Each structure stands twice: as C-alpha cells, then as structure tokens.
Amino acid sequence: TIDDAFRAIERAIQAENEGRYREALKHFLDGGEMIVTAAEKEASQKVRNLLLHKGKEVLEWAEHLAEWILE
C-alpha cells in the first residue's frame, strides 16, 4: 500500500541519516517499487501519473545512492 511505501521511505531516510547506507538503499528501493505497484492499480489517471512520478523519483534517488556506495 501507499502507507507501507511511505513507511519504507521514512525508514530509508532515518537509516541514511544514521549512516546505514545499504539499509537505506534497500528501504528506498522497497518504497519506490511499492509506489509504482500502487500506481499500476490506480483507477484515476491523474493519481496514477502522480504516483508514477513519485515512485520514479524515489527509485532514481536509490540509484544515485547505490552509485555513491560503490565509489
């Protein structure tokens, strides 16, 4: 659900702030994927587009974090 997705993102932010970057990455990926999944089930085109945009933002952040971890 969207609530689960945002809880995962909150955990990711907390982990990132505490320097637990790999854990943060996992939570960002989980949250982003949950948002995209919820968007695919959404009946309203406007809400679907907003959710897809937010999911994409979260997944892009996860990608940047992963690249930073690997440096």
Rank of each mutant, 00 (worst) to 15 (best):
G55E: 01
H27C: 09
M34N: 02
H53S: 14
A24F: 02
A15N: 02
E57F: 07
H64T: 08
H53P: 02
I9H: 01
E67Q: 11
F28M: 04
V36E: 03
L50W: 15
E40D: 10
V36P: 01
T37A: 15
K46L: 12
E57H: 11
H64K: 15
H64W: 08
E33T: 14
K54T: 11
G31Y: 14
E18N: 08
K41L: 09
H27S: 05
I13H: 04
W61Y: 15
G19K: 02
E10I: 15
E42R: 03
G55S: 08
L59Y: 09
L65S: 00
L51H: 01
I69N: 01
E18S: 06
K46N: 09
L50P: 02
N17T: 10
Y21T: 02
W68N: 06
G55W: 15
K56Y: 11
E18D: 09
V47M: 12
R20V: 02
V36N: 08
L70K: 13
L29K: 11
G55M: 14
Q14L: 09
I35M: 14
T1N: 11
K54I: 15
T1Q: 06
A15S: 04
F28E: 00
A66C: 15
E42Y: 08
H64Q: 09
G19T: 04
A24K: 01
I69D: 03
Q45C: 12
A8G: 02
E63T: 11
L29D: 00
K56N: 05
R48S: 03
W68F: 09
I9M: 03
A62F: 11
H64D: 05
L25G: 00
L70E: 15
W68I: 10
L51K: 00
W61L: 05
K41D: 06
L59W: 06
A15L: 13
G55I: 13
I13R: 07
R11F: 08
E16W: 15
A39P: 02
D4G: 07
I2D: 01
L70C: 14
A8Q: 09
A62P: 00
I9N: 02
T1C: 10
A5V: 07
L70H: 10
I69F: 08
E23C: 08
I9T: 00
M34Y: 06
F28K: 00
I9F: 07
I69Q: 02
G31C: 09
E67D: 12
E60V: 04
V47A: 06
K54E: 03
A38M: 14
M34S: 05
H64I: 10
E71R: 09
L70Y: 10
E33A: 15
K56C: 13
A8H: 11
T1V: 09
T1M: 13
D4R: 09
F6R: 07
E63L: 13
E71V: 09
I13E: 02
R20Q: 05
G32M: 15
T1S: 11
H53D: 14
R7F: 04
G31R: 03
A62E: 00
R7C: 09
A24T: 01
Y21I: 04
N17V: 13
D3I: 13
F6Q: 04
A8Y: 08
W61M: 05
I35Y: 07
K41A: 10
E63V: 12
G32V: 15
L52N: 07
I13T: 04
G31H: 05
S44C: 13
N17F: 11
E60F: 05
E10Q: 12
R48F: 06
G32Y: 15
L29T: 06
N17W: 11
A5F: 09
Q45S: 11
G55A: 15
L52A: 07
H27F: 11
A66D: 03
W68E: 03
V36M: 15
R20D: 06
I13M: 04
A12M: 06
A43V: 13
K26N: 05
I69M: 09
R20W: 04
R22E: 13
G32C: 13
R22A: 09
A5R: 00
W68D: 03
E60M: 13
K54R: 07
T37S: 10
G19N: 02
K54W: 15
H53F: 08
H64S: 09
E42G: 04
Y21E: 01
D30M: 14
V58L: 11
W68T: 04
E18Y: 03
A5Y: 06
I9S: 00
R20F: 07
R11H: 06
E60I: 08
G55Q: 05
E40G: 13
I35G: 03
R7W: 03
A8M: 15
E63N: 10
I35P: 01
F6N: 04
E67L: 08
I2K: 03
N17I: 13
A39R: 01
L25P: 00
L51R: 00
E71Q: 11
A38T: 06
L25R: 03
E71N: 10
N49Q: 08
L50C: 14
L25F: 04
I13Y: 04
G19C: 12
Q45V: 09
H53G: 11
L29H: 05
W61P: 00
S44F: 11
A62K: 00
I2V: 10
A39V: 10
S44Y: 10
K54C: 15
